[in-house]
Amino acid sequence: MKEFALLFRQPSYDYSKTSKEEMQALQKKWQNWTASIAAQGKFVSNGVRLVADGKVLKAGGVITDGPFVEIREMLGSFIIVKADSLEDATTLAHGCPALDAGGSVEIRPIFG
């Protein structure tokens, strides 16, 4: 089996108005979804979770407070899975909670 990165992008990571209960429910949703991949023996590792705020350095030394206003979705985090093919890995991405948040999952093979 080959390894793939599933990259999660969402339009927003602003949870300031989300209640504690909703946060817990969301966390469970993510856990259930990753565990579903792990139950198939296809989970490799958790990537890092990125904090929403950051800086961007562009050519010419321009520094901005993030790319987030310019692209519709921003990268939040990723996981590594293993699958027989790109199609198989894409199947694993179904049901990802990022999709419910209006986001997307990008499936990219890893060199190796």
């Binding site: 469970k28 856990q31 259930n32 990753t34 565990a35 792990a38 139950a39 198939q40 023996g41 989970f43 958790n46």
Partner: peptide
Amino acid sequence: LQLYNQLLLINYSPSIALNR
């Protein structure tokens, strides 16, 4: 369920997958 979910992420085994 949540505990089995976490367990699977640490180490997979068919038995844990079934129990989950």
